[in-house]
Design a protein around this nucleic acid. Structure first.
Lengths: 335, 335
DNA sequence: CTGAAAGCGCTTACAG
DNA sequence: CTGAAAGCGCTTACAG
C-alpha cells in the first residue's frame, strides 16, 4: 500500500509540487494556476487515487485539523454519558463540515486521567470542546495544555467561548407548565448535591415560578423517595430536575399503581433525544444538545481562527405532553 | 506558544537528537543509553515542558496512532446512537491505554456520507472499528479506503476481525426467562423489517426456545400495536426485540392502566447501560457493549500490528427483574 | 553507548 | 502563472 504523493502527481502531470499543492488545496478556485494545468492535476490525482497525508500537511501548516472533545462522565453512570454524546455528535457533524475531525477524550475520573490523555500530553489538537461537569480547579490545568478551549454546559461562564442552555429559565418553564395546567402543589425532585450549576439554576427558576404564582415549592431529593411517594396525588405535580429523576418518580408511582398525567403530574427540566423514543409522553423543557454541539463546533473553529466567539445562552421552549395534562380537561374526562 | 522540540532538549542536555528520541520513546528501558544521559534528558524534557508533536512522529513512523470509529445512525434516531456510543466509549478507554486515540466518524446517512469523511479521504487512521448496521454493499468500499478494519456488531461475519454478541442465544435466553417464569403465551414484538442480523437471530432463538418447550411463538411488529395491546394478559409474556420495543410495550400497557410484571410479563433481548438507570426493573439479556468496545480495540490494535485477530462471539447472561416475575409467586401474593 | 545524515509528504515564501 | 529550495519535528538505519 504505497502512498501516492504529491510528487507522483507532479511528475505525471508534468508540473511542480507547489502547483499540485495549490490546485489540491484551494477549494475556492482563486489560485493563480492556469486552467489547463489545474484540470490536468485534478485528473491525474483522481487517476492515481491520490489521498493526502494528514500528518504531512499538519506538520507543514502547524495545524492538525483535529478538535478534541472532553467528555467527563456522569456520577453514577461510569463510562457512559449519553447526554454528552448528543453534544459530541452535533459537534462532530459540524466539524466534519468544516473539514476537521473529532478526537474523543472520555475520562472516567477526570481528576486522575487528564494528564494521561494523549490529547493533552502531545500537541495533537488545534482546540478543544469541554463538556459538562468539569471541576473548576481543573480549568487552569486544561487551559495550560490546550490553547483554544470552548466550554459547553460547564461550570465555566465568561464573556467569550462559553455555551449554555439558560437553566434558570428551564426550571421556570418546567414549573410554569405545571402551574398553567392547574396543579397547585409543586414538588421539585432533585439531587441531594451536585456541583453542576444547572441544578442550582433550575431550582432557582422553579422557586421563582412558584413565587410568581403565590405557591410554595417543596424540595425533595433522592434520599427522600418515601416522602415523594406520598406526594403522588392528583393536585400535585412533580418537577423532576433531570430525566433520571423523572424515571425514578415514574417507577415509584408504578409501585403504587399510579400513572403520571392521570394520577399526578410530572414535568422535567431536562431533555434528551432518547426521551422522545423511550418516553415521548413526558412533559419537559427542550434541550437541543445536538444543535448546541454544532454551535460549539463553530465557536471552536472561530476561536482557532483567531476570534474568540461571544458566549451564548439559549432559552428553550417546552414540550407539552400527557404527563402533565391540564387539570380541568382531565377532571372533565373523568367525571 | 513556541513548541519545544527534541533539538532543544538535545542542546540543553548536551547530546544528540537520536539519543533524546530514544530516551523519550522507549518506555521499556531496554535502550542502549547510559543512565546518566537518560536521566539528564528526562529531567531537561520535564523542565522545558516538552510535549511531542504527534504529526511529526506520525510522519516519521508512518503511523498516526489514530483509530477511526464509524458509527452509523439508527434509523428513526438520526444523529444519535446511544448504543453505539457505549461501544465507542469502551473502545476509547482501551485505545487510550494502548497509547492511541479515537477519531469519531458519525455519519447520518452512511450511504451518502462515507466518501466525504476526512477519515476516509485522507490517510489519517491506522485502522478502523466499524459498528452496527452498516450496509453490506458498502463494505468493499470501506475496505478499499482503510486497510485495517474490525467489524463490531455488523452484518459482516468472517473468521477474523469480527465481534458479536450471540444474538440467537440472546433471543433464546430472553424467551426461556419467560417460559421458566411460567408464562405460556409468548409474543415476540419486533421491527417489521430491519437489515441487521441481530433481529433475525433473536427471532430464531425465540422460536427455538418455544419449540423446545412445546409452545408457539406469536410474532407482532410495530405495525400491530393494536394486537399487542390485546395480548397484555397475566399468562402472556411479551419478548421485546429491542429496548425501544420494550418501552413501546410499557407505554401501550400504561394506556390501559396495566403494569409489566404484575398484569403481564415483559422481557427484552437487548440491553443498554442506560436501562439500568432508567428502567432497572426490566428483565433482559445482558449486552456488554462497553466491554465489547474494549475487546474490539484490542482486536484492532492486533490487526494493525500485523496479526488479524480471531473473530469472537459472546454469549451473555440474563438480568432477571420484576417485569417478568415467576407466575407462581405472583399468583400466591395476589390470592 | 552516541552522533551525523537522510527522509517522511506537504506547504510556504521567494524568485523567476 | 510556475518552480527550486527550505523547512515543519521526529525517527531510523548506519557509522563510529
Amino acid at each position: 500500500m504505497n502512498q501516492i504523493t504529491i510528487a507522483d502527481i507532479a511528475r505525471a502531470a508534468g508540473c511542480s509540487k507547489p502547483v499540485v499543492s495549490k490546485v489540491l488545496h484551494d477549494r475556492g478556485g482563486n489560485t493563480r494556476v492556469s486552467a489547463a494545468t489545474r484540470d490536468r492535476v485534478i485528473e491525474v490525482a483522481k487517476e492515481l487515487g491520490y489521498r493526502p497525508n494528514a500528518a504531512a500537511r499538519s506538520m507543514a501548516t502547524n495545524r492538525s485539523g483535529h478538535v478534541g472533545v472532553l467528555v467527563p462522565n456522569t456520577p453514577g453512570n461510569p463510562f457512559t454519558h449519553p447526554a454528552g454524546y448528543e453534544i459530541v455528535t452535533g459537534a462532530n457533524t459540524r466539524l466534519h463540515e468544516l473539514g476537521m475531525s473529532t478526537i474523543l477524550a472520555n475520562v472516567d475520573d477526570i481528576r486522575q486521567g487528564i494528564d494521561q490523555l494523549r490529547l493533552f500530553r502531545e500537541h495533537l489538537v488545534d482546540g478543544m470542546m469541554v463538556l459538562g461537569n468539569v471541576p473548576l480547579d481543573l480549568v487552569p490545568r486544561i487551559e495550560e495544555l490546550v490553547e483554544h478551549c470552548v466550554w459547553i454546559d460547564t461550570n465555566v461562564w465568561r464573556h467569550t467561548c462559553c455555551l449554555r442552555r439558560d437553566e434558570h429559565f428551564s426550571g421556570l418553564q418546567a414549573t410554569q407548565l405545571a402551574i398553567t395546567a392547574g396543579y397547585r402543589k409543586l414538588v421539585l425532585f432533585t439531587y441531594p448535591d451536585n456541583e453542576h450549576y444547572s441544578m442550582h439554576e433550575r431550582r432557582g427558576g422553579a422557586e421563582q415560578a412558584c413565587a410568581d404564582a403565590g405557591l410554595t415549592l417543596e424540595i425533595l431529593t433522592e434520599n427522600q423517595k418515601g416522602e415523594l411517594a406520598e406526594r403522588l396525588e392528583p393536585d400535585t405535580c412533580i418537577v423532576a430536575n433531570s430525566i433520571y429523576q423523572a424515571f425514578v418518580a415514574r417507577q415509584l408511582a408504578e409501585s403504587k399503581r399510579l400513572f403520571p398525567g392521570t394520577d399526578f403530574g410530572l414535568t422535567c427540566c431536562d431533555d434528551m433525544r432518547q426521551v422522545n423514543r423511550w418516553w415521548p409522553q413526558l412533559s419537559r423543557v427542550e434541550f437541543p444538545r445536538f444543535e448546541m454541539g454544532r454551535i460549539g463546533a463553530d465557536m471552536c473553529a472561530e476561536l482557532i481562527a483567531g476570534t474568540p466567539p461571544r458566549s451564548t445562552l439559549l432559552r428553550c421552549g417546552v414540550i407539552e405532553r400527557a404527563s402533565c395534562q391540564a387539570r380541568t380537561a382531565d377532571h372533565l374526562s373523568h367525571s
